[in-house]
């Protein structure tokens, strides 16, 4: 295993550009590489912007989804590298799991480490999990697992089956209706740094085969969790499956249901009922 500690956070636009230019001719197995950064402290301005866009209350602890933002550039750097077998453009985020061991203070110095694992077979291609581990003072406080689907890609021989579904109970009670405006992707891109063109405008999304720009899955997840603000324990596992893309603009409905140990969630299109997100939130035992 090669572990590289970066001295600064890589710039995402450049990474996206490089990943796009070097998209062709990729293949092989996952690299046994880890990227790391040490002593990262959340930028208060970025945090405030993020909280506003996702509707988290701004406080002295990080929203449970926020560490993903810190780790994401490292994950993109990993995927942009030629050694990564799948082309970054066209990768679709299909599942995201977060295990928050405890809440993280805004001023805490965090050590980040990301890697890729679990190259798996999917009926539409192959999936790969981008992992992130966040530690503070040598103790792991947060773990993330983002599963991406590469359509038409081939997993290596002997790869396991993809695991992209999240089981939820009956969700027929509407907790909220969201008007998701057409600038939702740009607004989230501004605070998250995720400037993937499929989120930014209809034109750029079309270039990658989408009818319209689509909302960031992690924004949908964050906003759903923000709707449960005040009702979640500090130590929590959040597992969501991103189903059909949420095209912008849209009106969507959030359904929530309290279950043993936590909540089940669904975000669906208000008129067609299309499922955008299904998720579970469970207190960690």
């Amino acid at each position: 295993m090669v572990r590289t500690v970066l001295s600064e956070t890589p710039a995402l636009p450049a990474l996206f550009a490089r990943a796009t230019l070097s998209a062709r001719g990729r293949g092989g197995d996952l690299p046994d590489t880890r990227l790391a950064r040490e002593g990262v402290v959340a930028d208060p301005a970025q945090l405030a912007g993020y909280a506003r866009v996702c509707r988290f209350p701004l406080g002295d602890t990080l929203p449970v989804t926020f560490p993903h933002l810190l780790a994401f550039p490292l994950q993109v750097a990993l995927m942009a590298d030629r050694a990564f077998p799948l082309a970054l453009p066209g990768l679709v985020h299909v599942r995201n799991r977060i295990e928050a061991v405890r809440s993280i203070g805004v001023g805490e110095a965090l050590d980040l480490e990301v890697w890729a694992e679990r190259f798996a077979r999917h009926r539409g291609g192959a999936t790969v999990d981008l992992r992130a581990s966040v530690s503070a003072g040598g103790e792991e406080v947060w773990r993330g697992r983002s599963t991406y689907l590469a359509r038409g890609a081939q997993a290596p021989e002997g790869a396991p089956d993809a695991d992209v579904d999240v089981e939820v109970g009956v969700l027929d009670r509407i907790a909220a209706q969201w008007q998701v405006h057409d600038d939702a992707g740009r607004r989230y891109a501004k605070v998250s740094g995720d400037v993937n063109p499929i989120h930014l405008s209809g034109l750029t999304a079309k270039a990658f085969g989408f009818k319209r720009a689509i909302a960031h899955g992690m924004w949908v997840k964050a906003r759903a969790l923000a709707a449960l603000s005040g009702r979640l324990p500090d130590a929590v596992d959040v597992d969501v499956a991103f189903r059909k893309p949420l095209l912008l603009p849209s009106t969507v409905l959030l359904a929530t249901e309290q279950v043993e140990g936590g909540w089940d969630l669904a975000v669906r299109n208000a008129s067609a009922g299309t499922e955008h997100l299904l998720g579970t939130v469970r207190a960690r035992r």
Partner: peptide
Amino acid sequence: PRTGLSMGEHAAI
């Protein structure tokens, strides 16, 4: 604010 539904829509439910 939290539900995005108008009062009338709530009442309709």
